[in-house]
Amino acid sequence: MSLKQRINDDMKAAMRAKEADRLGTIRMLLAAMKQKEVDERVELDDTMVVAIVDKLIKQRKDAAQQYEAAARADLADKEKAEITVLEAYLPQRLSADEIAAAIQAIVTELGASGPGDMGKVMGAAKQRLAGQADMGQVSAAVKAALAG
């Protein structure tokens, strides 16, 4: 079953179970997916859906940080609950050691050295690790690999 179909099935299950918060989050995800399909006139595959989920999680994390800075714990908690629902649609994430090893392999393969090659390494890393790792962690690993 495709990830897109699983999300649709989860929406129906949330409707039946009357889980309003979960249903709202899934509907927001489906709306983002539909928007991407309409804007780009494409049929989304699992990789594209994972990229959308990643983007939405990043937005929720940023919003939660801003709400916490403004002492609005109620809104921050809502954002964190949405993150929990969205994370169910991501594949298993790589550990920090696995990310570092993958980045080291990319650096060696590209012959990159020094901070000037960061863009080249990040481009390759985004292609290979999309959906498998948080890009913030990947960026930190690339900086560490190119600095040493």
Results as ranks from 00 to 15, higher is better:
Lys143Trp: 03
Leu86Trp: 03
Ala70Met: 11
Asp10Ile: 00
Ala51Met: 05
Ala14Asn: 02
Ala130Cys: 03
Ala96Cys: 03
Glu87Ile: 05
Ala17Leu: 10
Val38Cys: 00
Met11Tyr: 13
Thr47Gln: 15
Glu98Arg: 04
Gln137Cys: 07
Ala147Glu: 14
Val50Ile: 12
Asp117Tyr: 02
Lys143Phe: 02
Thr25Gly: 06
Ala144Ser: 15
Val50Asp: 04
Lys12Ile: 13
Met48Gly: 10
Asp62Met: 09
Lys120Leu: 09
Glu40Cys: 06
Tyr89Asn: 11
Arg93His: 09
Gly148Leu: 11
Ala14Val: 02
Val49Ala: 09
Ile106Tyr: 04
Asp97Thr: 11
Lys55Leu: 08
Met118Gln: 09
Leu44Val: 12
Ala69Tyr: 01
Arg27Phe: 09
Ala73His: 13
Leu56Ile: 03
Glu109Val: 04
Arg93Asp: 02
Ala71Tyr: 02
Thr84Trp: 00
Val38Trp: 07
Ser113Ile: 11
Gly123Phe: 02
Gln65Tyr: 10
Thr25Arg: 10
Leu3Trp: 06
Arg93Ser: 14
Ala64Arg: 08
Ile103Val: 15
Val53Cys: 04
Leu23Pro: 01
Leu146Lys: 11
Ala105Arg: 10
Ile106Leu: 03
Lys36Arg: 14
Gln65Gly: 14
Ile26Pro: 01
Asp46Val: 01
Leu3Cys: 06
Ala145Asp: 07
Lys58Arg: 15
Val142Ala: 06
Gln127Tyr: 00
Ser139Trp: 13
Asn8Tyr: 13
Ala20Ser: 12
Ala105Asp: 14
Gln5Glu: 10
Met1Leu: 12
Lys12Cys: 00
Met48Glu: 14
Arg16Trp: 06
Pro115Asp: 14
Leu3Tyr: 05
Lys78Asn: 03
Glu79Gly: 05
Glu19Arg: 13
Val121Gly: 07
Leu146Met: 07
Ala20Val: 15
Ala31Trp: 05
Met135Cys: 09
Glu87Trp: 01
Tyr89Ile: 11
Glu68Tyr: 10
Ile83Asp: 08
Gln104Asp: 15
Ala31Gly: 08
Tyr89Lys: 11
Val85Thr: 13
Gln65Ile: 01
Glu37Gln: 14
Ile26Asn: 05
Ala140Glu: 12
Arg41Ala: 15
Met11Gly: 05
Arg16Leu: 15
Lys120Asp: 09
Lys126Leu: 01
Ala125Val: 02
Glu40Gln: 12
Ala96Met: 08
Gln127Cys: 01
Val142Thr: 04
Asp46Phe: 11
Ala147Ile: 01
Asp21Cys: 01
Gln137Thr: 02
Met11Phe: 05
Thr84Phe: 05
Ala17Trp: 05
Ala101Val: 14
Val38Phe: 08
Arg6Cys: 05
Ser2Ile: 12
Tyr89Arg: 08
Glu87Leu: 05
Asp62Tyr: 04
